[in-house]
Design a binder for these strands. Sequence first.
DNA 1: GGTCATGTAATACTTAAAGTTACACGATCC
DNA 2: GGATCGTGTAACTTTAAGTATTACATGACC
Lengths: 149, 149
Amino acid sequence: MRQDTRLSRLLHVLLHMAQTDAPMTSQQIALTLGSNAVVVRRIMAGLRDGGYVESERGHGGGWRITRRTDEITVLDVYRSLGSPDLFAFGFSNPKPHCLVEQSVNAAVEDTIRSATTSILEQFGALRLSQIEAEVRDRMPSRAMRCADH
Amino acid sequence: MRQDTRLSRLLHVLLHMAQTDAPMTSQQIALTLGSNAVVVRRIMAGLRDGGYVESERGHGGGWRITRRTDEITVLDVYRSLGSPDLFAFGFSNPKPHCLVEQSVNAAVEDTIRSATTSILEQFGALRLSQIEAEVRDRMPSRAMRCADH
DNA sequence: GGTCATGTAATACTTAAAGTTACACGATCC
DNA sequence: GGATCGTGTAACTTTAAGTATTACATGACC
């Protein structure tokens, strides 16, 4: 696996869900994402537990967003995924005896800590409604459609 | 794969190499890192190409650092690895047709871009000599030894 | 010439996200 | 009430990149 794309995918889905009142099925979402219905249910589970979306079974069932887009931040979505690792690099040994390695870890950790803070602050400050507004800026026409599907 | 530990390992090795004039063999380094001699040669290749270390074969051969620790930054070491990806998260699709996904990508990219800048600035500002000084602060006694090996 | 050490190719292992298959459970439609 | 639709989950497979291992060629020194 190269990278974790779950955050991007969830943001994408949530914005599409915000455009319609009708529930979206996992299968529809999977087509939108170019993914799989089971994967969709898996990555959406945290959002459901967090109360950002709700799911219903049976005919006419599917997923619906339950909050306004200005009430959801990227940080909320990130946390719904279980706050996965942000960085692709890290320590070789988290608790080394070697003093040199301890200092290397401390230096690397400093960078990771400050970058984490900065990223989470940006995530916390960014609401879905802002991304939504950005979409409107990109729109050549009036319809908010997804050309991919 | 969990995380890329090459940067931490190279920093660790370079600091040990800076403590001695004698060359360290890949095997010695591998023991220090809890790794493998071939892996060591592989991750050190970039440092050699960058002129930060030199390697010699045969009896009495091995690796030697060729610059002072205040002449090498963490950024130099990072670049010697080929500037690998810093982040564990990313886009699902780099060039989506969907306007919504484009906006999501743009938002995520903003965060990645600014965090990248911040991290590389910190890497560029941090010299091996500073980590070395940090090691001395951690030292209970006077010898700069690695308790792990 | 023998040994030591690097250089590198080829192959297998590891880990987590992503994809797939299978099936239970519940809701709606007929 | 049975068929269909859709979620919920477990179990397994696939994928990608770092890591580990094996094998062997090359070069340096004793």
